[in-house]
């Protein structure tokens, strides 16, 4: 019999929401004995758009690419450490391109059956909804999606894990 959740992935952009999502994913991975991946996406699409729009010069693009890669590595190490504290292995995954497309591709490549994400930014306008990459991933990805909310409860569940 198949387990309800076999492979999970959490999208990690270093935000408070994604840290909360990582904690919830660790709790669920422990509970369901599921494989857990953490994904960081180097948003090269945004960088290219900024060069095309002449907002960035080439040297600036390189500088930001390096900084984004360093930030991504730091975020993933943090997720791995959070897992280690609770005896859960978190497998690091890196991708680049547009955030929504990269999430969708990794879900397919790794046969993920549950994607865990932090809450998308509060949508306050139609324009906002069109531009939000995390929201787009949530709407288009080919697996179940769980949005982490209720910080107090998630923290409690995470702390309860031995």
């Amino acid at each position: 019999m198949k387990k309800p959740i076999e492979r999970m992935m959490v999208y990690d952009d270093g935000s408070e929401g994604s840290i909360l999502a990582a904690r919830l994913a660790i709790v669920l991975a422990a509970e369901f004995d599921a494989e857990l991946h953490a994904l960081s996406v180097l948003n090269t699409r945004a960088l290219s758009e900024l060069v095309q729009a002449h907002i960035f010069i080439e040297s600036e693009q390189e500088e930001y690419r390096r900084e984004l890669a360093e930030d991504g590595a730091r975020y993933l190490n943090h997720a791995v450490e959070m897992g280690k504290r609770k005896g859960v292995t978190v497998i690091k995954q890196n991708a680049s391109g547009s955030i929504s497309a990269a999430i969708k591709e990794k879900v397919a490549e790794l046969h993920i059956d549950l994607l865990v994400m932090g809450p998308p930014p509060r949508i306050r306008s139609r324009r906002d909804a069109l531009y939000d990459e995390v929201e787009m991933a949530m709407r288009t990805v080919d697996c179940s999606v769980l949005i982490a909310r209720d910080e107090e409860r998630i923290e409690e569940l995470y702390e309860q894990l031995i």
């Binding site: 948003n43 945004a46 758009e49 729009a53 907002i55 960035f56 900084e67 930030d71």
Partner: peptide, 19 residues
């Protein structure tokens, strides 16, 4: 200096608006 991600995202949104 330590917020490259949000900086890029804000600039990218402005680039889209400029179109």
């Amino acid at each position: 200096p330590d917020k490259a991600g949000p900086h890029i995202e804000a600039l990218a949104e402005i680039a889209k608006l400029s179109r």
